[in-house]
Nucleic acid binder design. Structure first.
Ligand SMILES: [Mn+2]
Ligand SMILES: [Mn+2]
Ligand SMILES: [Zn+2]
Ligand SMILES: [Zn+2]
Lengths: 132, 132
DNA sequence: ACACTTATTTAGAATGGTTATAAACTAGAT
DNA sequence: ATCTAGTTTATAACCATTCTAAATAAGTGT
């Protein structure tokens, strides 16, 4: 399996559950945005065996910490994650409650002129809300 | 009282509770960021009478809907609000878990090149995460 | 293959921010 | 003063997320 090495190199044991979650998350043509609930449903459909919700939470957080997933800052009752971990931004369609990727090239270069004493910039994220 | 008209014009009855919350939120030199929990504590300290948590939630949401407060898109277990309703952006200090305003002039002009069929841009919000 | 250690999975309980409920109260209108 | 719709309130319910602790599985050494 192609994810075994990736997991081992990250200090994560390549368990059956993690490998299956990898398939659901990363064996896709395109990257996508999801909530834990979305992911649990997708897993239920695609896989024959059950993975407990606790494991899904654990795995998503482990992958996020290792940089294989990104959390998207957005106000929702559920946390949104992104399998696209490159630097990029988002449209948020308020009516559809859907995220749409904005490549860095779709947003002009962003220059932060203000500095904060002793802190450095870790990330810059742009959220563009859309209405009809 | 200076908030009575403002509330009436918004179709909100100027109740004692709403007027007091207005004072706590808007009778300040500087604008600030808060969670409902923050606000409830501030109210407890500044006021002699009690305002129920339900009323604080109701009022904050009513004010948000009327445009007197802004919700800040950020990943936290609590929702953050802003008494600064002008177009502006934020630093988020990951260690201190604090928001810092970024004026529009602190961020170069942002030009969104991508368009979405039949949708128009409602807002553009930049979140700059800070680490040590 | 076996024993041993440590990581992981799991069901279910607990947590906690937020929202819903429905009864008491109040502002504004007549 | 009376009426009506809006508001406040205590409390319950909701529900995404985290915690717990016991069972299971992976890795390591022999
Ligand atoms: Mn996380
Ligand atoms: Mn709201
Ligand atoms: Zn994305
Ligand atoms: Zn602000």
């Amino acid at each position: 399996m192609k994810y075994i090495e990736k997991l081992r190199n990250s200090g994560l044991r390549p368990t059956k559950q993690r490998l299956q979650i990898c398939e659901v998350l990363f064996d896709t043509e395109k990257t996508f945005h999801f909530t834990i609930n979305n992911l649990a449903n997708k897993i239920k459909k695609q896989l024959n065996n059950k993975i407990s919700l606790a494991t899904i939470y654990n795995t998503v957080h482990a992958f996020e910490k290792k940089g294989y997933l990104k959390q998207i800052p957005i106000n929702s009752n559920q946390t949104y994650f992104d399998t696209n971990v490159s630097d990029h931004h988002h449209f948020y369609d308020l009516k559809e409650e859907k995220l749409i990727d904005l490549d860095n090239s779709d947003v002009g270069p962003i220059n932060i002129l203000k500095k904060v004493n002793g802190k450095k910039i870790k990330s810059i994220e742009v959220l563009v809300k859309l209405e009809d």
